[in-house]
Computed example of a mutant assay.
Amino acid sequence: MQTPDLGEDPLALDRQVCFALSVASRNVISLYRPLLAPMNLTHPQYLVMLALWERSPRSVTDLCAALHADAATLSPLLKRLEAVGYVVRTRSRSDERRLEVALTDEGARLRAEAEKIPYRIVETLGVELSALEELHGLLSTIIAASRRALDARNGGQA
């Protein structure tokens, strides 16, 4: 592979992908906070709920895979969601080692309110939907490439 031309200063802050991703992520997540607050959700909890609104119940292992998170990160989120009455955690009847998470009726009802959020975010950002979809595709490519790199670096255990 040919060495890419990274310009005169490859360490210029405003040219760093990590910096742009970090600032964009922090800013966009900040836009979600006031929309999630009336639902008593943080952004990480919202991501868990999104996964459960797609399919419930789900095993913790399945949720970890869907959210690209580890069980130690997910466990406190699930405890908090259970404490507010949005989910229940139970041991699988077929395998006691397997912990399953399911939406409660209240958690399922919350979806109707949450469906407004993506529209509000698109409106607030003021960016064309096609540009956001293109960005999402590019970020998905970056996520897949970084996962492959991490898997290779960690011997397949990223």
Rank of each mutant, 00 (worst) to 15 (best):
L21Y: 08
D151M: 10
D9L: 03
E133P: 00
S25C: 10
L41T: 01
A51L: 00
P118K: 05
V28K: 09
M39W: 02
W53V: 05
E96Q: 08
A108T: 07
I142Y: 13
A152H: 02
L41S: 00
L35I: 14
D151Y: 02
G126K: 12
L47A: 02
L78V: 11
R111K: 15
T73H: 15
E123D: 11
S130C: 10
D151K: 04
L150D: 09
L63S: 09
L125H: 05
L132W: 09
L11M: 04
V60K: 11
V88Y: 02
L31P: 01
A152Y: 00
P4G: 03
D5L: 09
E113W: 10
D5N: 14
A20D: 13
D70V: 12
A102F: 01
C18K: 14
R97M: 04
L125W: 01
P118G: 07
A145F: 05
E54N: 07
E113G: 11
Y119F: 11
R15N: 06
V122S: 05
N154L: 12
L81P: 00
Q16G: 00
L47E: 07
P118S: 05
L13P: 01
V87I: 15
L125N: 02
V23I: 12
L150P: 00
L138C: 06
F19T: 15
P38I: 04
H68R: 15
A144C: 01
A158Q: 03
C18L: 15
R148Q: 13
R148F: 08
A72S: 15
L129M: 08
E106T: 13
R33H: 13
R98S: 06
T42G: 01
M1H: 14
L77F: 09
L125F: 03
R153D: 03
G137A: 03
L41V: 02
V60I: 15
S92M: 03
T104I: 15
G155S: 04
D14T: 06
A24C: 04
L150R: 06
L35A: 05
D151N: 10
R93W: 01
L99Q: 13
I143G: 00
L139F: 07
P38L: 05
L139D: 09
R148K: 08
D105S: 10
L52E: 00
S30T: 03
N40T: 12
W53F: 01
A83F: 06
D14I: 04
H68Q: 14
V17E: 10
A20P: 03
A37W: 10
L150Q: 04
L74W: 15
L129E: 09
